[in-house]
Amino acid sequence: MNKELLIETKQLQKKYVTDTVETTALAGVDLQIAKGEFVAIMGPSGCGKSTLLNILGLLDSPSAGSFKFLGQDITHASERQRAKIRKQNLGFVFQSFNLIDELTVEENIGLPLAYLGVSKAETEKRVTEAMERMGIAHRRNHFPQQLSGGQQQRAAIARATVSSPSLILADEPTGNLDSVHGREVMALLTELNEAGTTVVMVTHSPSDAEYAHRIVNLFDGQIVTENLNVRKHAAELL
């Protein structure tokens, strides 16, 4: 692999301890993701997909192992440092959209820029661009509940991309959508990836996974197979 590594994990482990039971969610994951890649993570329920995604997204920290982000070891980074990396580099897309109900579409999308301290004029410009790109500009003053599921997810993607992050983490982004809207979302993610953004996506859906360059299969907290998506690569080579 000649490209620069964005993510590199070594023997990543995550254990949850409740009163009496210790559950292993991740049992030593070695994963490398290069800049510009589109990686799908698949596996049955409870295999550790979401845990892995949360750790990659710096929302959670590993119990053991190491984690480098852009070459920097952040295994033991403080919550403050992780919050800083999140707001500068990451965008999140969730199955349940997680838009804030009390904010309008425009305000939701502008929120990451507010935390980055971007000026008002610049925010307005970038939010408008993001909405136009996602085809929801006519809905800017609506509240999330007034939107269809597909529109909500597009708003969520607009929010995830408005700060031009280098990595987008998507957790079952089409899980709550019908197939038409699901395909629309996947097309958007592909578009973003083609423009240079790295995408890591957790999914149950083999057809969604087809959009990725590489499919990582997880089982019982370990990577069992790692396949290049032949069709995709072939298409790119042509």
């Binding site: 919550e79 919050a83 800083k84 999140r86 707001k87 999140f92 997680n98 929120l111 990451p112 935390y115």
Partner: peptide, 10 residues
């Protein structure tokens, strides 16, 4: 949760 994911500090 969302605010924190986006990068809000505690």
């Amino acid at each position: 949760g969302m605010r924190k994911a986006i990068g809000a500090s505690r």
